[in-house]
């Protein structure tokens, strides 16, 4: 058993799980500042929602880690260990292969449209929360820790905006990546006009907020 990552909300371990030689166990840990009973309830609910969103995402045809076991009492999700690199690492490595960057960005948009068409809002779209599966080069969405189910275009637009901001702060030439992602996203997403309109609203609000600080 090894500790892969220690985030603000969760610890991610790599271990084995019977027939699976490798497995990820994600532990949402307790917030000591919260009332223990409330905290337990929230952790439990959040763990279950994360697992359900992972399964729902897979059902709608996008690639996400398979869920093996959910332990709401200990706030654990046992899931598939995805072999590959994070999207962040990939984009940073392939700085000059524009065709490749474009190809993968297009895949991200297509997958995201599928996710939104199934009313799953990811909630934390960053290039650290996507992976590129080794071998198949499929785009894998991970970390559904803030995900929820919603059919509101507003929620989908905010999801896109979060991604837009994350790209801008993480990657040089982010607009090239973003353009390719959005082009394929809007080609496939349901109610694309409304989502686009909402995205423009959300951007405007974001800019206003930035100005007034």
């Amino acid at each position: 058993m090894t500790l892969l990552s220690q985030g603000a909300e969760a610890r991610v371990f790599k271990t084995s799980f019977g027939l699976k030689e490798v497995c990820i166990v994600k532990e949402r840990f307790r917030k000591t500042y919260r009332h223990p009973v409330l905290d337990e309830k929230l952790s439990k609910r959040r763990t279950i929602l994360e697992a359900r969103c992972l399964v729902r995402a897979k059902k709608c045809g996008i690639d996400a880690p398979a869920v093996y076991l959910v332990d709401p009492v200990k706030s654990l999700i046992y899931m598939e260990f995805v072999e590959g690199e994070t999207m962040k690492a990939f984009f940073n490595r392939e700085l000059n292969d524009h065709a490749k960057r474009n190809e993968i960005s297009t895949k991200i948009g297509t997958s995201l449209a599928k996710l939104h068409n199934a009313d799953v809002v990811h909630g934390d779209l960053t290039t650290s929360n996507m992976m590129l599966r080794a071998g198949t080069e499929s785009v894998v969405f991970i970390d559904f820790g803030l995900s929820f189910v919603s059919n509101l275009t507003e929620d989908k637009a905010v999801d896109l905006y979060v991604l837009e901001r994350a790209l801008a702060s993480t990657h040089p030439q982010s607009h090239v990546l973003l353009d390719a992602i959005l082009a394929s996203y809007f080609k496939d997403v349901k109610d694309s006009k409304q989502v686009l309109k909402k995205l423009e609203d959300v951007r405007l609000r974001g800019r206003k907020r930035d100005q007034t600080g």
Binding site: K58, K59, Y78, E80
Partner: peptide, 15 residues
């Protein structure tokens, strides 16, 4: 994927 979904269903059943 069918296996993944079956297993996911078993894992989340009743939650």
């Amino acid at each position: 994927v069918l296996e993944d979904l079956i297993v996911g269903g078993i894992a989340t059943k009743g939650f």
